[in-house]
């Protein structure tokens, strides 16, 4: 199992971002490197890639606020 973490180097301060969209459904099969979500901070959109191949588990829904370093989902072993 791999956690999907919002990287800690996306923006410069400790302000919050928001998950603007998940690009796969919970339970979908995804490949390592697939862009699974977009997170927005100050009108800039950042891609979040799957850290591994497997089954996507979404833990933090669209429109939720997130901090850098937060886990927003998991990739379960296929």
């Amino acid at each position: 199992m791999s956690e999907i973490i919002v990287p800690t180097d996306l923006w410069d301060d400790d302000s919050l971002g928001v998950i603007s969209t998940w690009l796969f459904e919970d339970g979908d099969a995804v490949s390592q490197g697939d862009i699974v979500a977009e997170v927005m901070n100050e009108k800039i959109s950042f891609d979040i890639a799957a850290p591994a191949s497997g089954t996507l588990a979404i833990d933090v829904p669209t429109e939720s606020e997130v901090s850098q370093g937060d886990a927003i989902g998991r990739i379960l072993s296929a």
Binding site: L23, F24, E25, V30, S31, Q32, G33, D34, E38, S53
Partner: peptide
């Protein structure tokens, strides 16, 4: 490169 066999449900925004 990532395995690209399972991207049939890939969604995109209109922007992307």
């Amino acid at each position: 490169m990532a395995d690209k066999t399972v991207t049939s449900t890939r969604k995109l925004t209109i922007a992307k």
